[in-house]
Simulated scan of single mutants.
Amino acid sequence: MSAPTFHANRPSRSEQAPLQAGAGGTGTLLAQRAPRGAGVAKELVHRHNPAEVMLTGWERRGDDSFGLTATWPRQHRFFTGVNGCHDPLIAAETIRQVGSLLSHAEYEVPFGQQFVMWNLSVTTWPGSLAVRHSPADIDLDVVCHDVKRRGRALVGLRYEAVLRRDGEVVAHGGAALTCISPAAYRRLRAPRLDGAGPALDLAGPVAPHEVGRTSPADVVLSPTARQGRWLLRADTRHPVLFEHPVDHVPGMLLLEAARQATIATLGHTAPPAEVTGEFSRYAELHRPCVIDAHRLPKRGAEESVLVTGEQDGENVFRAIVTLPPSAG
Rank of each mutant, 00 (worst) to 15 (best):
Leu255Lys: 13
Leu266Ile: 09
Asp235Thr: 03
Leu241Pro: 07
Cys85Met: 04
Met252His: 15
Lys42Pro: 13
Ala258Ile: 10
Arg10Thr: 14
Trp118Arg: 15
Lys298Leu: 14
Leu231Glu: 11
Arg237Gln: 14
Gly156Thr: 01
Arg192Met: 09
Ala17Tyr: 08
Phe66Gly: 02
Gly67Ala: 15
Arg237Glu: 13
Thr69Arg: 10
Glu210Thr: 09
Met117Tyr: 10
Leu44Ala: 12
Ala51Arg: 09
Gly84Arg: 04
Pro11Thr: 13
Gln32Thr: 07
Gln75Ser: 09
Arg259Gly: 10
Ala91Asn: 07
Glu302Cys: 12
Ile263Tyr: 02
Pro50Asp: 12
Ser128Pro: 00
Val143Gly: 01
Ala34Trp: 14
Glu15Thr: 15
Val142Thr: 07
His286Pro: 05
Leu254Ser: 10
Ala105Phe: 08
Arg158Val: 00
Phe79Pro: 05
Ala203Gln: 12
Val321Arg: 02
His238Ser: 09
Ala38Tyr: 11
His145Arg: 01
His145Leu: 03
Leu193Gln: 12
Pro288Ser: 10
Ala92Lys: 05
Cys85Val: 11
Ile291Asp: 14
Glu43Gln: 10
Arg189Cys: 00
Asp194Trp: 11
Glu302Ser: 14
Asp87Asn: 15
Met1Trp: 02
Leu30Ile: 14
Pro250Thr: 09
Ser222Asp: 01
Ala41Trp: 13
Tyr107Leu: 03
Gly57His: 15
Gly22Ile: 01
Glu168Met: 08
Phe78Ser: 14
Gly22Gln: 00
Trp58Gly: 04
Leu323His: 01
Val122Trp: 12
Pro208Leu: 04
Ala184Val: 01
Ser100His: 10
Lys298Tyr: 12
Pro325Gly: 02
Arg189Glu: 01
Ala319Ser: 15
Val316Ser: 05
Arg77Trp: 08
Leu102Trp: 02
Gln260Trp: 05
Gly212Val: 05
His294Val: 14
Leu200Pro: 03
